[in-house]
Design a protein around this nucleic acid. Sequence first.
DNA 1: CGGCTTTCTTGACTCGTTCAAGAAAACCGG
DNA 2: CCGGTTTTCTTGAACGAGTCAAGAAAGCCG
Lengths: 141, 141
Amino acid sequence: MADEDFEQVLRAASLRVTRPRLAVLAAVRDHPHADTESVIDAARRELPEVSHQAVYDSLHALTAAGLVRRIQPSGSVARYEARIGDNHHHVVCRSCGAIADVDCATGHAPCLTASDDHGFILDEAEVVYWGRCPACSTARS
Amino acid sequence: MADEDFEQVLRAASLRVTRPRLAVLAAVRDHPHADTESVIDAARRELPEVSHQAVYDSLHALTAAGLVRRIQPSGSVARYEARIGDNHHHVVCRSCGAIADVDCATGHAPCLTASDDHGFILDEAEVVYWGRCPACSTARS
DNA sequence: CGGCTTTCTTGACTCGTTCAAGAAAACCGG
DNA sequence: CCGGTTTTCTTGAACGAGTCAAGAAAGCCG
């Protein structure tokens, strides 16, 4: 996907097209599950002088528009991914924090229904599978 | 449950019995889903001079021993609960952050299996249902 | 009770994130 | 293409949850 496509994506979401946003969108697409600092680094490869605040602002705008998804497993800083719209889930390594995608078993949101919703109006079921990644489970613990 | 019972609980977990730990255990039991600051406040009602660090240390020790569970929905600070061992889940209000318990539909951990575990050895599936609580869904948004 | 180990107090500090003010860039209508 | 308006970006300070560290206190065991 080239910058012109990202531009269309931004316009379709009624967002102004700015260089920081294009760089952030590309960074998130190219680095799934990257934390903010990694996104800043990646964005600066394309746009060296971009400020950290512009990246934070862009991530907020893109998240609010639904163009990127923010995830934050317990104990982790915020992470972002560009795979959206399929309500997929994640496996997270308790030891090293590695994250991988897991397809949603049932296909569409909310993919699970609560046994008792306590009167809440639910729109999403987020699943985090906790365990140990292959590298950490073979290493001595 | 009285302090003597908490004492037994701590001993059974091979933890030293200290007044901060007893106070924290009682605070978490009495205030499900409380954040650390609330736990500190509640513990200080019983033990006025306890330091914030002692509460942090106690929460870590109790969490590591499995006597309390730490949860942290995206965007929230750490919260603790004393209901353990049943791998139950939570509904969280996107608007006000209210949390309520939801029984695990299938009964025992891991209550879900991933469609593709990527070689991870999984031990828990954590589900967060996102939506709006009754108060927030009736209020004008 | 004495000694060893763990935990608690105190206070400084880190780090991810947010706030705020002014400068710059994007967009819209003409 | 241009000016005006609005949004976004830069810069730099600030915030807050949580952690670190050193010494004092308390718990535990024989």
